[in-house]
Design a protein around this nucleic acid. Sequence first.
DNA 1: TTATTATATAGTAATAAAGTCAAATATCAA
DNA 2: TTGATATTTGACTTTATTACTATATAATAA
Lengths: 117, 117
Amino acid sequence: MWRIGTGGCIVKKEMSFEALELIASRFKVLAEPMRLKLLHELSSGERSVTELIEATGASQANVSKHLGILLEAGLVKRRKDKLNAYYSIADESVFKLCEVVCGSLAEHLETKRKLVG
Amino acid sequence: MWRIGTGGCIVKKEMSFEALELIASRFKVLAEPMRLKLLHELSSGERSVTELIEATGASQANVSKHLGILLEAGLVKRRKDKLNAYYSIADESVFKLCEVVCGSLAEHLETKRKLVG
DNA sequence: TTATTATATAGTAATAAAGTCAAATATCAA
DNA sequence: TTGATATTTGACTTTATTACTATATAATAA
């Protein structure tokens, strides 16, 4: 995508629905707070599943499932050592995305605050 | 968020779950291909609902509903003129987000292609 | 081998979201 | 006022997603 904008990105006249579905599915992966928490935790370095369970307070099965989703999406990578599985960030772009969202949200909330009071 | 990375963003040690939910909800808005299609359509300028119905091929009620979600999220703005409602982009950050996702996806798919064949 | 630990997966119930149809609202014209 | 057009909203159905529980797998130790 999408247009000439900040960062000099490319204009595309047509955008296939398949492409849009692909992009949407990436956003969907990031659309869960628990997965964001996992990514946030991993932002400071590799963690074992056990460590992530402790850090998030979520159940073991839940953490494992979310990690599977992040892995499938290519956002994290997995390393097995003895009994443990260690996860780490595989795609730094997630931080860029969150940064952009944070900026936009701050502005949006500020606007709303001004309007609503 | 989130860490020192490309673009010089801020490290935050702690990230409240509320903040993560807020970020996730923004991603959720973008996690539907039809909404992305609407945004893509609007990227070249203001459109009436009727025009968006034609452009997307979705039903009128469906388009209206998605537009409502985008509006609520502050991504688009609405202008009423006579019988028509005109929508336009209110938050250019969505294009930045899609640009980042596109870049990341291209890389991810390329990697997968190399591995799987 | 059996037991133990770490992780993943299957089945399931509750929740949420998308899409459809019909009805409601709003604006304008006759 | 009545009728037509543009858009929104509500009720409903279908489909997805989450999180839970229990079970399965995998690696190691005894």
